[in-house]
């Protein structure tokens, strides 16, 4: 089953093409990573999928057709942008409670079931002791966990993450990626995430799509996408892909001023 079907999608900003005729399929229950250089169009593709930018072509998430029905879409799909907004003064609990929005009528208040789901989401992400804290005062890793808790509270089938771990140190990055993997596994959700760290992408994603200059360059299992020749064309020729304890590790060698 296909969870996200993107067919011939093009996006342009002020006459400049950012995505050209992009098609990808994300299978249900899998984790697809979008990789590629800065400005390749990864974030734009994610924004098109969540209905945040206008596009030509067709995007379907389950039965919902973005951006026709916002509510049906929000019931299926949760999104964490590259720089989520954490309102100053809002408690972590209230922030996670926002995830219940698509499940409520426009003027309805949250019921006890909504509150219980929020507590459950907070417990899954280890945030129970932070409930009364100002969400804007959390550390980088904690804010990402708060975002993921809101995603869980939304109870989606599909999670779209734009650089969920961009500003985190290596330990916090791994912690967040492990949490995403756990959510994917335990709740059977489909994950589509833009990810910069190619080594992490190889370890966590079931499939990868490599995008460059608005085009899909390669798609498939990490071993097929992360090859030295493909990455060399897209990034720089000095990229090396090595295997450490059964996992792919992508490194870039220094070419100038190398002390060796």
């Amino acid at each position: 089953m296909t969870a996200i079907a993107v067919e011939s999608v093009s996006v342009s900003y002020n006459g400049t093409n950012v995505l050209t005729d992009v098609s990808i399929d994300v299978a249900e229950g899998t984790w697809m990573g979008l990789v590629g250089p800065n400005g390749a169009g990864k974030s734009t593709l994610l924004k098109a999928i969540v209905g945040a930018v206008d596009y030509d072509g067709s995007i379907r998430v389950g039965d919902a057709n973005a951006p026709d029905d916002r509510k049906a879409m929000a019931l299926r799909l949760a999104y964490v942008p590259q720089r989520p907004v954490f309102p100053v003064g809002m408690s972590v609990f209230d922030f996670v409670l926002l995830g219940r929005t698509p499940h409520l009528g426009p003027l309805a208040a949250e019921g006890s079931q909504d509150i219980a789901i929020v507590w459950d989401s907070l417990a899954t992400l280890g945030l129970t002791e932070f409930v009364n804290r100002d969400v804007a005062s959390l550390s980088g890793g904690e804010t990402q966990r708060a975002s993921l808790a809101r995603v869980l509270a939304q109870e989606p089938r599909v999670v779209v993450l734009d650089e969920a771990t961009a500003s985190l140190d290596v330990a916090a990055q791994h912690e967040v990626l492990e949490l995403i993997a756990r959510i994917q596994e335990e709740r059977g959700v489909t994950v589509l995430s833009a990810i910069h760290d190619l080594t992490a992408a190889a370890q966590f994603c079931d499939e990868l799509t490599l995008i460059d200059e608005g085009d899909v360059v390669a798609t498939g299992v990490p071993e097929g996408v992360l090859t030295e020749s493909t990455l060399g064309d897209v990034f720089e020729p000095t990229i090396r892909v090595i295997e450490v304890e059964g996992s792919l590790v992508v490194v870039s060698l220094r070419t100038e001023g190398n002390p060796q």
Binding site: A74, P84, D94, E110
Partner: peptide, 23 residues
């Protein structure tokens, strides 16, 4: 008064608010 919960939703900005299912 009836829209006070929606005002909280608006506080995360238009993009995130719309992905939470509101307009």
């Amino acid at each position: 008064v009836a829209s006070r919960r929606l005002l909280d939703v608006m506080s995360v900005g238009d993009t995130e608010a719309s992905t939470l299912g509101v307009k």
